[in-house]
Design a protein around this nucleic acid. Structure first.
Lengths: 191, 191, 191, 191
DNA sequence: AACTAAACGAGACGGTACGTCGTGTCTTTCG
DNA sequence: CGAAAGACACGACGTACCGTCTCGTTTAGTT
């Protein structure tokens, strides 16, 4: 389909990996604010053009690097109760988000999504909404089982969960510990 | 103390206002990503030095502009019930945050707070934590009245409320309508 | 010897001509300053490598294109007098050099010969010195007939003739009209 | 007039001189083909913008550097005879043009004048035509004294002199020695 | 009234990074 | 195996802003 055999040199996988690796290193070392395309190119031994050819912005490189390194795919548990599913889902999410370099990167991406509208669209569609969909499945099943309080839409439940997580990440910068999972479960369970 | 009468020319209030006005105009016209100190100076007919003299970064100018224009101070209601207090507090908050230019500015500031650690500190202390404190009073009173579910800390309640708001602002970009207030109240009330 | 039947595909005459034609078109359209190998390849529908394979620089392509298009070979007249020979030689030269695209190309080549020493060497040997030799024959015959002023070397006579032509081309950019031939003849004839 | 007192920082003479010096050094070391604005800025410890602010192209920087270093103003002699005036004028010219770095620079400027039409105009008006005017005075006086051959216009005389010099510089690259002056005088004197 | 001191608009300065263009090379596929 | 297509590392381009630094000017106290 997309990989029909075209003439011409093929994209260098080696360069691609070097770019992603260099990007993560640089963000870890000096923060997203100091990340530059020029710097990535220099560190990875690549021409700038090679970066511009394949990614529309440095935030996209970073998102790609994050996705390639940390497998962001979180399995959707199905254990028969909201309590169990949510605990497991959040536990897995915390595991990722608590690693400081991953947390820093997520912060930077969410920030850049606000400042660069084009990237914002991609970030929402390729990252945020996928996570929403995953949680959505869990919530839908819980609703069918009658585990959710009436008067609170499924969308809102999802917003509350991710909202709290992101708020801790962005605003209070407290580690999103184990306790939070229990509190959210308590709050969201029908009583 | 600080404002002891010193010799020399006084700070020009006219320049200050021109800078803040120009800043808001420019953000409204082309977005925060296109905001530059150079542009603010040109638009407001001011030397760049005058901006650097009084604000540490362009985000600080913007925060100042926002505070000067929209009164961000939200009164802390005390109507005797969590339901009433929260509804009123959120209603007042939505009023502000639903005006698109204000929402855009808040998004930009939260974004910049992630990217520029120095500004992040100021933004948290001078803006985010003040809002938290206001809501904290409401929550504390509700707790005393036993209106809150057990097993959920006051901090978490606050995180849930603001988290949901910010998440809608930053991630889903849905208008934070009236309905949300009711849903949050329902969720947070002891049952 | 050199054209022994070698294995492999033969050089494509079609590509060669397309390259030369494209080169002349591009110079005519936007000037030598805007001429690029990349542009020639694109215009002629040829891979860049094909150009690099057969010419050492874009100036060489242009020189080749000029030689292929305008026959630069000027016959050496022998009419028995310096006056007649020189008039005829210069007339034929002017015919060529007054066509604006040819003049522009010559200017560009002489310029590039100054900037790129490698090409300079080739340009001198393959173009400039051949023209010198042609005029040299005329001058030598005139000298034998005693038509040249004493005290002026043959080399200088040639330098004066070509120097004046090139100077008009490069510096004053005046059309090298008919009159000039007469004046040069007058100046160079023994009196 | 032009130097009316304007607000703002003044142009830095130190930077200007550093730029001109660096330019000459770089041309001398690696040739005009390797001269870059970037290189000049680096060598002179100046920002690129400072160069772009004051000169329209690197050739203009070089022309300025040449004019500042070697005083290109050649005095117009008036000794009463074409022979004496011309000998002196050419002698002074040779002195300059025989210094290899000056010769190389002149070659490069004349070349660039062909490739960049904008610079070409400036080079002709600010350099070539001034030299022509100087020689023009000498020729005019000679004409009044009847020292020039009839049938050869003053403009052509000038073209012959400068043409021969430039041709030697650009094409044969022979040193323009003393002998040439004598031969030109012989050729141009009425007989 | 003279003096001092700070803030002001203007704008040049040394820098850094941008995103683009062209170079010359290398790799792949096709004829 | 030549030739198209096109990716690659590299280097320079010319521009935009950064934050700093003079300038000459204006405005307030302080002597």
């Amino acid at each position: 389909m997309t990989d029909q055999s075209r003439p011409g040199r093929k994209r260098s996988e080696q360069s691609r990996l070097a770019i992603l690796a260099a990007t993560l290193e640089l963000v870890a070392e000096a923060g997203y604010g100091a990340l530059t395309i020029e710097g990535i190119a220099a560190r990875s031994g690549v021409g700038k053009q090679t970066i511009y050819r394949w990614w529309p912005s440095k935030a996209d490189v970073l998102l790609d690097a994050l996705a390639t390194k940390a497998d962001l795919q979180i399995p959707i548990p199905d254990e028969g109760s909201l309590r169990a599913d949510l605990t497991r889902f959040l536990g897995r999410t915390f595991e990722l988000g608590d690693k400081s370099p991953v947390a820093d990167t997520l912060r930077a991406l969410m920030a850049q999504a606000q400042i660069d509208p084009e990237f914002g669209k991609r970030f929402r569609e390729e990252f945020l909404f996928r996570r929403r969909d995953a949680l959505g499945r869990i919530v839908d099943r819980a609703r069918e089982r009658g585990e959710l309080p009436a008067g609170v839409g499924s969308g809102t439940v999802i917003d509350v969960v991710f909202g709290t997580l992101w708020y801790r990440l962005l605003a209070t910068r407290e580690p999103v510990g184990r306790g939070l999972a229990g509190e959210l479960v308590a709050l969201l369970s029908a009583r």
